[in-house]
Design a protein around this nucleic acid. Structure first.
Lengths: 152, 152
DNA sequence: ATTGAAAATCATCAGTA
DNA sequence: TACTGATGATTTTCAAT
């Protein structure tokens, strides 16, 4: 489905989407139009979902990241739906997954600091209905964090 | 540090970094140059880390996401360093955090399917030295996954 | 910090092999 | 699928405030 040229284009775009078609065409020894058409095709197919900027969380006071595991009191469909509908509204919650194992949900939360997390728990999360238990895992250090997919 | 205009620019850029300065200047009632300079400043300060594309993992056969918690046998500095140096090399590992709690590390791993994960464990992870135990949490459903920071 | 306009660069589209 | 050449749009720079 994707040949090596497509993969190479995607790798470059993931690293820096502001790279010009001209630069790509030099690197990959292909005409600008050919590169352009390949990108358009991947956009149309939905392989390229969006163009975005990455922001340094620390510099905007959101450098404290916590993974929070949550178990609901009961697994009634209605409770699950309601929990999901509410939790995605919290701006602190960047990711929320329905997971296997002891807990039902895994949340990735960004706040300013421990105090900000405390406030999030007290003012927001604990107000949700049907929460059984919550367990927080704090990030001490970020060893690796890439959004770029490597093709293999 | 960031005023409301900066935050608004960042919000737009996170949603779609291909938005033109002209469009931004219409939305925010500011001249093109003013927008341009504000963006440049945020780039220089490192607030805008990079421009990138988001790729649909499912469409490139990497839709199976697993969180894997890892405990080392011993907490010798040398072991930690070696583990980190090796684990970041695996293309399947998108994120690796040093965390609080029962486990030492939390890894976010993307593979094609369960079989791909099995192979990753057998061919790669279990070959690393000093691993005490590993616990996998499988993602059943993605309720929310945004890379965009909301300013508040 | 902002403006408006000029200059340089780029994305995009026909036409064609 | 890919290429060349044309054009309209966009980014970037600059003088002035």
């Amino acid at each position: 489905m994707l040949d090596d040229l497509d993969k190479s284009i995607l790798s470059h775009l993931q690293k820096d989407s502001k790279i010009t078609i001209k630069e790509l065409s030099v690197h990959l020894s292909l005409s600008g139009t050919a590169i352009y058409e390949r990108i358009r095709k991947m956009e149309r197919k939905g392989i390229i979902e969006s163009y975005s900027v990455r922001i340094n969380k620390n510099l905007v006071d959101l450098g404290f990241v916590v993974f929070c595991q949550i178990k609901l009191q009961e697994h009634k469909h209605e409770y699950l739906v309601k929990f999901e509908r509410e939790v995605i509204k919290f701006s602190e919650v960047l990711e929320c997954y329905n997971v296997s194992g002891d807990y039902d949900y895994l949340l990735k939360i960004t706040v300013k600091d421990m105090n900000g997390y405390h406030q999030f728990l007290n003012d927001k999360l604990t107000y949700l209905d049907h929460i059984g238990s919550a367990h927080s895992t704090f990030i001490i250090n970020e060893v690796k964090n890439t959004h770029a997919i490597e093709f293999r």
